[in-house]
Write a protein that binds this DNA or RNA. Structure first.
Lengths: 204, 204
DNA sequence: GTCTATAGCTGGATAGAC
DNA sequence: GTCTATCCAGCTATAGAC
């Protein structure tokens, strides 16, 4: 039992460090992007040496994959906790607002628009794909409910709505507005939601 | 005069090769992105050797910068040629449709959402910045005209409209729809325009 | 101006001591 | 499990022959 507890402690410390690594990777990724993020960057941010990283993650791709998986899991958790009173489209709006706030707070975009290499790397990560498909399933259901209630334009295919929705989580408009328009975070979120749901033209 | 003509011929050949290099760089960039595109790729595609590339462009950054400049110039030329009868918002729609078709045809996104390094590289390219500012000036004017006519929602700041507009030219929705929804190019363009101008919700 | 060959560097990944 | 030191691949960029 003493041994068991020691093992537990060790595992706990190991787990804590792993979280610290993932946090560092996430913020570095958000700041510099995949290619400019080096394993040295992450090791330095965590305060350990590069080879120690490789005790936790067998490659850079693996590390980034885990960070993305954790993010998707965060979205799934957030979705479950949204008040049931909200209508489908209100739920979509709420989740997107959450994702944009995460990003504005230095987190990752939910979907990596980035480079072809990142996409290739992620699409060969089966665990990541499983999570994405799960999230996609949940969102597809919400979109269909919203359509059935007339909350979404019926002539738009579900795929168009869903993919446009995902793309908003990595929309560079966020960065442009912050950098060049000096706009506050909440204002940015509101405008992005407004443009996505209502468009830029007046609803005559 | 014989000499002059010889020089002219040489210049012409030089110019032709330069165009070929820019074409190769453009399509390689569109296909693989900045970091995965190597100078060897471009040299191979053009059919010359790598050092010859450096006779035309002094660095990879320079080459990519010129490709982007040529793209912006293309947009400016296209804008000038749009029929004057079109209303401001119809002009915005027409130009965006053009940009999306260029991209679907294997060209570059007008604005590089890509990585931080690309943005850093381009923002330190004065000639590129000048072109972008020029294009931005023209588009800002069109947006203001459209607003004055009530063709755009008046409560949206110009910056929100403009930056959202730019972001649509590098919207990954395009790629998602092509890859996963097997949608035709024209249909993709129509849907993207529809979502941008009218939103996903019905205009009650 | 074109090539072959190579310098020089960066960054992912690992060997081996402790 | 952690570190120091290092390997090695791949890439940009250039030297130098023709």
């Amino acid at each position: 039992m003493g041994i068991l507890r020691a093992v537990r402690f060790k595992d706990q410390a190991f787990q804590l460090r792993e979280d610290a690594i993932l946090n560092a990777a996430t913020s570095t990724l958000a700041a510099k992007g995949f290619d400019l993020m080096t394993m040295d960057d992450v090791a330095l941010a965590v305060g350990i040496s590069k080879p120690s990283l490789y005790k936790h993650f067998k490659s850079k791709d693996d590390l980034v994959g885990e960070a993305m998986i954790r993010l998707i899991d965060g979205a799934l958790v957030y979705l479950e906790q949204i008040p049931a009173e909200l209508s489908p489209v209100e739920r979509l709006r709420d989740l997107l607002a959450w994702a944009l706030r995460v990003r504005l707070g230095g987190g990752l975009p939910l979907m990596p628009s980035t480079s072809a290499q990142v996409r290739t790397m992620l699409t060969s990560n089966l665990r990541y794909i499983r999570r994405v498909l799960k999230l996609n399933g949940v969102l597809e259901k919400i979109v269909q409910d919203a359509k059935a209630r007339g909350e979404l334009r019926p002539e738009l295919p579900d795929t168009v709505i869903l993919f446009s929705y995902y793309a908003r989580t990595c929309d560079p408009t966020v960065d442009y507005l912050r950098m060049y328009a000096k706009m506050g975070d909440e204002e940015i979120v509101e405008h992005l939601l407004g443009v996505f749901f209502r468009g830029v033209c007046p609803s005559t």
